Simulated assay, not measured.
Amino acid sequence: MKPLVRNAALSGYIELSRSLGIDPRALMKRVGLDPVGLALQDRWIPGASVTELLELSATAAHREDFGLLLAERRRFANLGPISLVLREEPDVRSAVELLVRHERMYNELLHGRLTESGGLATVKVSLDPGDPRESREHREQHRDPRATRQAVELAVGAYHGFLRVFLGARWQPLSVCFTHSAPRDPAGHRRLLGPVVEFDREFNGIVLYAEELDTPNAMADPLLRDYARQYFASIAVGDDATELDRIRELIEVLLPTGRCSVEQAAGSLGVDRRTVHRHLAASGQTFSSLVNDTRTQLAEQLVANPRRSLTEISGLLGFSAPSAFSRWFRDQFGVSAREWRARRSGDGPVPN
């Protein structure tokens, strides 16, 4: 399957587009993305569609710095759950290493690398939106850098903003490099990245003094670090995550929307429904059975929480009415949700 990115990669896209006088809805529809779906930050969408959308938007707005303008709107929390751990890392180096090591948790399109040599540190960024049936080396050699210009600048701009969170708003890198050529008017790039931005270089990324990576993280609370890392370890997605894992994650995201279908899942994965069915069949599953298994696991967690009303849980699990949820729960667990909760937590009032 082709690389995916979280919807959070487009955080601020609609507001930025409208401020520049272009129609975000029309452009998103053109590349097969659902504007309403952006409200679901953790939903996964095809990386190639995001890359194409950024290029179309830059052209429509006549802004060669569109990707950087979007990066400027990026917030720390847009990284998702990993941001909770990054805040507690002891220094800049460990935060960057963690971000690079777990980049698949928020962007499968992005490949970052941190290197140090001769007193300098380099954060290199590359994108890989190509056909996974080809080797990565082949894709790198035959890719037109103009097709990913805005996405690359968004990624480098986001890293630049990330480093400034730790090093301060006045911090300047030694150099910000891009492999593509300079824009006609570089004023926007120099405003956002400083006077050190360079084009037609051999890599995309940021160069800084290695000693700056030793800067302590002023946000960190040592008492919270172990808790943050334990939480992250429980949700981290490794490189060995299966296609079944990816589909299950999508089901969890889609259930509360009431639009959890194989078509929606396939669209988010950038494939057709037959491909989804084929991956599920290889694991002895169907889409319906996986939805049911996922609902069962979530129901155990949600119903056990006395602060959640059964009506609310019904909606979170994607049921059209509480009565449908009640019938399903009794079929799965042999008792009503109310009785099951009472047995787990002791007798007491159950919110409707």
Rank of each mutant, 00 (worst) to 15 (best):
N78I: 06
N78K: 11
L79I: 14
L79C: 08
P81Y: 02
I82Y: 10
I82E: 06
V85G: 04
L86G: 01
L86Q: 00
L86S: 02
L86M: 05
R87G: 09
R87N: 09
E88C: 07
E88A: 02
E88K: 00
E89S: 01
E89K: 07
R93I: 06
S94Y: 01
A95Y: 04
A95F: 03
E97W: 04
L98Q: 06
V100W: 01
V100C: 15
V100D: 05
R101Q: 13
E103C: 12
R104W: 06
R104V: 07
M105D: 11
M105V: 14
M105F: 09
M105Q: 15
Y106K: 04
N107A: 11
N107M: 08
N107I: 08
L109H: 02
L110S: 04
H111V: 13
G112W: 12
L114P: 10
T115Q: 12
T115H: 15
E116L: 11
E116G: 10
E116K: 14
G118Q: 07
G119A: 02
L120K: 10
L120I: 14
A121I: 07
T122D: 13
T122H: 14
V123C: 15
L127G: 10
L127M: 12
D128I: 11
R133Y: 00
S135T: 03
R136G: 01
R139H: 11
R139E: 13
E140H: 14
E140P: 11
Q141K: 15
H142G: 12
D144G: 03
D144L: 08
D144Q: 00
P145C: 00
A147T: 08
A147V: 09
T148M: 05
T148F: 01
Q150R: 01
Q150Y: 02
A151K: 05
